[in-house]
Design a protein around this nucleic acid. Sequence first.
DNA 1: AGGGATCTGGAAAGCGCTTTCCATCGCGTA
DNA 2: TACGCGATGGAAAGCGCTTTCCAGATCCCT
Lengths: 354, 354
Amino acid sequence: MDEQRSRGADAAGTGRVRPVTGAVTLKQVAAEAEVSLATASRVLHRSGGREVRGLLAERVHAAAERLGYVSNPHAQALARARSSTVGLIVHDVTDPYFAAIATGAMHAAHAEGVMVMMAATFRDPELEIDYLGRLRAQGARGVLLAGSGSTDPAVSGRLGDAVSAFTREGGRVVAIGARPEAGIDAVVPDNAAGARRARAHLASLGHERIGVISGPETLLTVRQRLQGLADGLRVVGADFTREGGYQAAKKLLAEHPDLTALVALNDLMAAGVLAAAKDSGRRVPEDLSVIGFDDLPFAADLSPALTTVRLPLREMGERAMALLLADPDETSPQTIDVPVELVVRASTARMVQH
Amino acid sequence: MDEQRSRGADAAGTGRVRPVTGAVTLKQVAAEAEVSLATASRVLHRSGGREVRGLLAERVHAAAERLGYVSNPHAQALARARSSTVGLIVHDVTDPYFAAIATGAMHAAHAEGVMVMMAATFRDPELEIDYLGRLRAQGARGVLLAGSGSTDPAVSGRLGDAVSAFTREGGRVVAIGARPEAGIDAVVPDNAAGARRARAHLASLGHERIGVISGPETLLTVRQRLQGLADGLRVVGADFTREGGYQAAKKLLAEHPDLTALVALNDLMAAGVLAAAKDSGRRVPEDLSVIGFDDLPFAADLSPALTTVRLPLREMGERAMALLLADPDETSPQTIDVPVELVVRASTARMVQH
DNA sequence: AGGGATCTGGAAAGCGCTTTCCATCGCGTA
DNA sequence: TACGCGATGGAAAGCGCTTTCCAGATCCCT
């Protein structure tokens, strides 16, 4: 009583002590229900692996209800040495690619009552490692690494260390897209198949001289897509951005005017390619066919509407989060392959014979 | 020593005890530095409002460094009754409008060493209230409400309650865009001025018969923009999405073929408007001028490139987060007005006399 | 030179919850 | 009838950190 006094004030005449701050504690609930703290905890959070029988349990629930009890996640995390938040690390929130993944992930997390701690690395691998450490210190249940990994051995090595430190403590790490680090669960789109399909589509339209606007080859995703495209193409690398696509396309078109089709390794670049084509005086698709990758929301709004390889981004986010939250009993690491499909729109057409 | 043994293993020959789990505690650091727990805490987290002098402080820092200490946020949150995370509640992560804001907010948070808990409401006001409650139970330092408020009194009332509960406990709530609820700090773009500018631009090009594709009028943002546009326009409301814009424009154009310009109340809708214009056989800007609002990244890639009212979204996110993290000493609630500007691109042109 | 005022570092009491023991209790079995 | 066993509720010891007191040391002023 005295002790409670110190945290709260006596509410109007009832003699009941009500905390000013609205922070109802388990202890108060236990007192209200006239059971021990342990029992209250067991009932409300089925903690300690023990069930509590009928009557007592009811009293506790009723008391909790009456008082409007909300458990303090920090206290739980501290006592259990594990919290109920998960981390979601993306390169860039502004990139629609990650936004779509994040949406799916948040949906799945919400369904499980888990809160998402989201961090953006702004493409700095150091930050990715740093966040992983903080999430670990915080006892996060797991971390979702959206965005494919780098093949740079130095970075990859340190990230790998951070990941093992995390998993060793019972956390789970799931990646979207292939990662060179071992022991990471992953949800990976079938990039190679998508690329193969894109190439086949172009071939069926009669295109033979095809250029590829590629991203940084340190990205595993890029490698897989390139691989699926197969040989015999003119490849030029660039930044994985709209601007990168624009510049690279401009250059490629100038150096190889005979190209009849261009495939960009992601839609952002494809947007740049379209702009470059226009600026170079080529009509799409009459003079030049263009294919993108990802099928981001804006792809259909480009002019002409972009033919592209669709990745079920949102679904991938959902599945990755589900995997993260799943019982780790199943043999980890696990890899879920996700099929992709080609969406044909207006940016590709049969080659016109001049 | 004995105690440390129980948590760690002796590393190769050094005689130094190293925890297996990587969870180095403050206690260990204190022991290593041969100071008390209190001192270590004061040095490492300048807690208790006390500084610690030179030598001791150095010893502690050195020890922390050596051991690779990372403080446990949950323990801190529990002891301080306030955590160092902030909440960021958005309607939809996929919407580039929110993505841009989130980017800015995360940047600012990162600079302060604060982690961001991000939640998406999927436009469900109930969820917004729910998240606010959870963030409160968790002792979040503050919450950023991105996305303008609803004027629905029922929703607004309950949200207002949640907000007061939160602020009463010392949390800070900052909104981006005007909110009907009292007592919320806010960063608000000068929507009315932007709208005025858009109208003036159109007027200067000779347009007089102007249509407006509006969003839900319950949104304060929408009201402000409408207000700035002033009277005498044909307004049609729709969903604040691309599809909504498309449908509304289609309809408006059919019913009022004499309109020479359309202003969409956000870029998403403007994208739809452009598509509708094309499908209705109007050339933009020759037959019809179109203006958007927000200047999202894709605006320049639309065809034709969209003339729009630019909101410094990212900067707004940054400022809002800065406000959230600032000393609450300054008289709250506070409102920061943000200027907007008109970006003229290719979707508007002088009216052609037929 | 003496005595308060000031400063420093440490001991210890929590923060709200989980979980390990323990003590009980009821029951089945020999 | 007596004994052992599993089930059940409670007491209490933490989880890792902050912060309030305290006591000892330092300082300055009269």
